[in-house]
Design a protein around this nucleic acid. Structure first.
Length: 802
DNA sequence: TGGAATGATGTTTTT
DNA sequence: CATCATTCCA
């Protein structure tokens, strides 16, 4: 009981809540993790069995930190027994335990995004479709959205609205691809990320005994970052909590930044409908940041129309104002930030780990890496090409996967001839074709004792069979050797270690080191598991469940003293004394991809809010006037977000000047500096649609600052947004965000990928088409003139080829 | 069949 | 500018 006294009143009340549904709306930096951990500790102290507590987070790191914090409150033994993990990892475990209910192998594979994309590409080509029309990535998005709304392939095919959407998008056979994808995954005993949530739902829906079992087991359920849950997650939680309704959700609508992957703020807004007698707690006092930072963040987020009412305030000192810095190039921006860090590090007694550089896209990290390296400042990059996505790591893991689950076709294809063992692509292709004909996995075909593959030459077949024999020999030891032991054996025995070791190029050495690092990681895993459950041998397949769902952010050794470089998304939940938010430019932040609709722009703004509120003491914003993008030098303009900050919190008054409208590319240094006044007659292009300001996003310009009373879910702009699907019929009362039909695409034959000629900009390729007939607009990439937005009624485009 | 050279192509954010 | 994919050659 005493430890609750370390909390403020609001926090304490929330943490002391025992039974019944509750929601905590927690402003940034208001101590929400504290409330979660203290509440769990308190529950256990009050006699609740730790085994009956389930806490769901979005990152493994958050889960680990919470476990640690709880351990310091009530001791490690108790803390360890709380079910704490990400949605995906917890449900993957449960699915593994219950796999026989849906005819899956216990050791099923979890396909990552790359696996499922390559499978999709395979299917698309296999169906004789054009992968330019059916882009694997966008089909993937479509399927993902469907699954997040609990639609399987059959539902998808039977859904008239979806079908007509696909018709109109010119991709009528998407459902067929989905269907095939589903079959192929089943055949390979594989699930993708979305399947984990989908299956979990189906499991609870179709097996009342299991529903009962887990409802009873998880007597207390806590959910972190509730604003980021999607429909599938929402429904799982709802079902699990239905028996006791001891459900605690914590979130901040202002920090909802995963709408693009199906997260639905409505889940927060609807909580009171599902649990009318819920108790609401609000945490509004910010302990993290200075007053200027809090005020700046508040002023920005106030421009969003959809929010839960709350006031974030702080008693902290005002601190220094937000700095805004203009640089001429992206490299200069890198140098600026690095020198700043260097000086601050020397001037104040701060550590390098107190600094973070946050950017919108991972591709921006390069200039900062270079500059930091030059000044000998240690840094660590998060995200981007994650450790687990490196080729050599994926190769080795593919061997592990194939060992655990022979039917994992993606893994099979990856390593059948790596290291080279003389199995060429024709042999493999024949195997693939034959497997498709017989509707079986590659492995099952290859090892079929009665009907071995018919179409492969003798030599090739023999080598393949040898390969299978080797994999089988690994399999035989799956349960007798520890994860690390077997991993090492596989790494050596396959020749992979040898192949990398003999490669003396710098990359080769790095790869070899990475393999070592992976093996060390498995060693650590093995030891850790043995500590938790000494009586059980941690196997390689146990490791695989973990590794599929790991990210770089989970990999950090906290004792490292280095500057953090990361995307704003991955910075969520973290805090740093000194934060640099870089690349504050139109088209970049807000991203050009996210300006189709008001709601997308608002998500970008929340992202900016998240960025600002990571800072404790100082926050520095910067932008560059020119930047390399797609290998091209491009002009850029200061982000509109800079103008949205309350000027009282900003250090550089000159930025208060009125900014040019978006998309006025090519205005030049002078124009960009002086603002839009310099544009007319300047280097701006005649007929440039920018001067028309046709974008909805412009609504948010300072000239019309107060958010109009938009309906709760403003109708999305017509556009190419592919991500949302109508809520499925059995979704019940949930949200009803039916989207109006897209405008008929007729009128023009312009489509993505069309090559056109413009009489000033030359040859270019259509990247995107949007808008309705008279005002239809195309985004075209011209190698000579860069990315341009053109209003079709003005621009005379000549179609060169489809 | 394997590897190197050349050419096309693409950038949001992540479990 | 990178990475990837395809092509071309030994």
């Amino acid at each position: 009981m005493e430890f609750l006294n370390q909390l403020n009143t609001a926090q304490r009340e929330a943490a002391a809540h025992m039974d019944g549904p509750m929601m905590v709306i927690a402003g940034a930096g208001s101590g929400k993790t504290r409330v979660l951990t203290y509440r769990i500790a308190h529950l256990i102290q009050q006699g609740v069995d730790p085994f009956s507590v389930l806490a769901l987070t979005f990152t493994n790191k958050a889960a680990r930190e919470m476990t640690e914090r709880i351990a310091t409150l009530i001791g490690e033994r108790e803390a360890r027994n709380v079910w704490m993990g990400t949605f995906h990892s917890v449900f993957a475990r449960i699915l593994r335990a219950e796999s026989e209910r849906f005819n899956y192998d216990r050791n099923f594979t979890i396909y990552d995004t790359a696996d499922s994309r390559s499978l999709l590409k395979d299917i698309i080509l296999g169906l004789g479709l054009d992968d330019e029309v059916y882009k694997p990535a966008s089909v993937q998005g479509r399927i993902s959205a469907a699954k997040n709304n609990l639609l399987n392939a059959r539902d998808y095919l039977e859904h008239p609205e979806i079908q007509s959407e696909d018709q109109q998008a010119g991709r009528p056979r998407t459902g067929e691809i989905f269907q095939t994808y589903e079959n192929r995954c089943a055949r390979a005993q594989a699930m993708d990320f979305d399947d984990l949530l989908y299956r979990m739902n189906v499991l609870l829906r179709d097996f009342p005994d299991l529903l009962h079992k887990y409802q009873t087991r998880f007597r207390y359920i806590l959910v972190d970052e509730y604003q980021d849950t999607n429909f599938a997650q929402y429904l799982i939680i709802k079902q699990l909590a239905a028996r006791f309704e001891n459900l605690c959700v914590v979130g901040d609508d202002a920090q909802s930044i995963y709408g693009f992957r199906g997260a639905n703020i409505q889940n927060i807004l609807n909580f009171k409908k599902d649990y009318p007698d819920y108790k609401l707690y609000k945490l509004e006092q910010n302990y993290r940041s200075t007053r200027h930072i809090v005020q700046a963040a508040n002023s920005v987020i106030a421009l969003n129309s959809e929010q839960i009412e709350k006031t974030v305030w702080t008693e902290n000192e005002p601190g220094s104002k937000i700095g805004i810095h203009r640089l001429y190039t992206d490299n200069e921006e890198g140098r600026f930030v690095a020198t700043r860090i260097f000086d601050l590090h020397n001037g104040t007694q701060s550590h390098f780990r107190d600094f973070a550089v946050l950017y919108r896209t991972n591709a921006q990290s390069r200039s900062f890496e270079e500059s930091l390296r030059k000044l000998n400042i240690p840094y660590k990059i998060f995200g981007g090409l994650s450790f687990y996505q490196r080729k050599e790591i994926k190769d080795l893991i593919a061997y592990f996967r194939l060992t655990a689950n022979h039917r994992d076709d993606e893994a099979f294809k990856r390593v059948i001839n790596y290291p080279a063992r003389g199995i060429g692509k024709t042999s493999l292709e024949r195997l693939i074709i034959e497997a498709a004909e017989r509707e079986t996995s590659l492995w099952d075909l290859l090892t079929d004792p009665f009907q071995p593959p018919q179409t492969i030459g003798n030599a090739g077949l023999r080598k393949m069979v040898d390969f299978a024999t080797m994999i089988r020999s690994f399999r035989a030891e799956l349960h007798t050797r520890s994860a690390h032991d077997l991993a090492l054996h596989i790494a050596r025995h396959t020749g992979l270690v040898h192949a990398l070791h003999s490669d003396k190029s710098p990359e080769g050495v790095a790869r070899y080191d990475n393999i070592q690092e992976l093996l060390n990681g498995i060693q650590a895993f093995t030891e850790q598991q043995q500590q938790v459950q000494p009586e059980v041998l941690p196997t390689l397949s146990d490791f695989l469940v973990d590794v599929a769902l790991l990210t770089d952010a989970d990999n950090t050794e906290t004792d490292e003293n280095s500057v953090s470089l990361m995307s704003i998304h991955s910075a969520k939940g973290l805090e740093f004394a000194h934060v640099f938010v870089v690349g504050m430019e139109e088209q970049l932040f807000p991203s050009q991809m996210a300006m189709q609709s008001r709601s997308e722009l608002e998500e970008e703004r929340r992202l900016f809010y998240v960025a600002l509120t990571r800072a404790e003491k100082t926050c520095t914003l910067s932008y560059a006037l020119t930047r390399y993008r797609w290998g091209q030098l491009m002009q850029s303009e200061p982000s509109r977000f800079l103008d949205e900050i309350d000027p009282a919190c900003v250090d550089m008054p000159s930025t208060r000047e009125r900014k040019p409208t978006p998309f006025s590319g090519g205005a030049g240094f002078e124009a960009a500096r002086k603002g839009w006044r310099a544009m007319p007659g300047g280097s701006s292009t005649p007929g440039d649609p920018a001067t028309k300001g046709g974008l909805p996003a412009t609504d948010a310009e300072p000239s019309a600052p107060k958010a109009e009373e938009a309906p709760a879910s403003a109708p999305p702009r017509a556009g190419l947004k592919r991500f949302e699907l109508p809520v499925p019929p059995f979704a019940g009362k949930g949200s009803k965000r039916l989207r109006p039909n897209l405008p008929e695409g007729g009128e023009t034959e312009l489509a993505e990928g069309t090559v056109v000629r413009h009489d000033r900009f030359g040859k270019g390729k259509v990247v995107k088409v949007e808008g309705v007939a008279p005002n239809q607009k195309a985004t075209v990439f011209f190698p000579e003139a860069g990315l341009r937005q053109l209003l079709l009624k003005f621009a005379k485009l000549q179609v060169l080829e489809e």
